[in-house]
Design a protein around this nucleic acid. Structure first.
Lengths: 173, 173
DNA sequence: GATTTATGGTTGCCCAAGGCAACTAGATGG
DNA sequence: CCATCTAGTTGCCTTGGGCAACCATAAATC
């Protein structure tokens, strides 16, 4: 059993009361650090992947590849950012020839997003390069812990997609 | 035992081989989403805390409070961002009367950072407001899982502080 | 002790990500 | 036909942050 789990299980049988506050505190703290480093981190990743592929582009491509055919609004919802941002980034991706935007036959306002061959190729390259970086970082971890981290992040993310809808454009109230 | 742990432990006894790739992939994916949402998240937090206290300021104050007396370079190292950024943000905090910068008696170049009474007060307010938000989000989780999330994030963060030193100013090579 | 080099911080200039608002164009419903 | 709604685009703004140049002090070397 991995380091993290042992500690967790131990604590679970201890005082579940005063610990709560401390636990929120700890999450808040670690998340604070992570988010502060977010940019540097993304940049670090992005740079090694492909200079032409800017940091933000990558996750966008991933998503477009995952859900075909994607629509702009899907992406805004998924990432919890405004459609303006997505629109601009898509424009760049299109100019780089990584995606194509064909008009949605079912809805004249919308566009369907697909990766071009070039896009798919670059994505594959970027993906493996990134995964290499992740392996380099997480390689010393227990496999279970890596999976655990992914799962915890995933669960946290689902929390945030609830409150991502209201307010400040995005879901547009 | 919490949901997350059960799954992890189960998998740990399954195929530890092909899973590795998948695990890195998953971390990468979830982290991508999280980082994309980072801004919105911080903003959301910051706004409710105190309008006068901008999002980024909070974590800075926390750190300054934690390690007294703090020096600018401590903060740059801790957050993994350049000293320029920190310097600017400190200036704002000083103007808001939340911190004071007194010259370091031991080193004429450096400044020692301390929270003012006002700063300490605002920080306390902000802190509890934020924790309230975290409770609202994580409240449905098992206590063990909250602690686990904090721990996993913490471990991940320690990974990144290794590679935060080289390159792009920060550690200045 | 004077000169070089290193270090802590500040500032100017730039970029990227994102929000908001105003707008266009197609869709829907009266 | 007109009103309203919705998908995207674009202009303008703010934040966070990097880089480089710079200043002042410290250390090191001669």
């Amino acid at each position: 059993m991995s380091e993290a789990q042992v500690t967790a299980v131990t604590r679970e049988h201890a005082g579940e009361h005063a610990d709560e506050h401390e636990a929120y505190c700890a999450v808040e703290h670690q998340l604070g650090v992570l988010l502060r480093r977010a940019r540097a981190f993304s940049a670090e990743m992005g740079r090694e992947v492909h200079p032409e592929l800017e940091p933000g582009a990558y996750s966008l491509l991933i998503r477009i590849d995952e859900v075909v055919p994607a629509r702009s609004s899907d992406l805004t919802e998924y990432f919890g950012v405004g459609k303006a941002t997505i629109s601009r980034q898509l424009k760049v991706l299109e100019e780089l020839g990584l995606i194509e935007r064909e008009p949605d036959p079912a809805d004249g306002r919308a566009h369907l997003l697909v990766l071009t061959g070039e896009g798919r190729q670059r994505l594959a390259g970027a993906r493996s390069a990134r995964q290499e970086r992740f392996r380099a970082m997480l390689g010393t971890w227990d496999l279970g812990d890596v999976e655990l981290l992914a799962r915890m992040l995933g669960r946290f993310n689902t929390l945030t997609d609830s409150w991502t809808e209201p307010g400040r454009e995005r879901g547009r109230a």
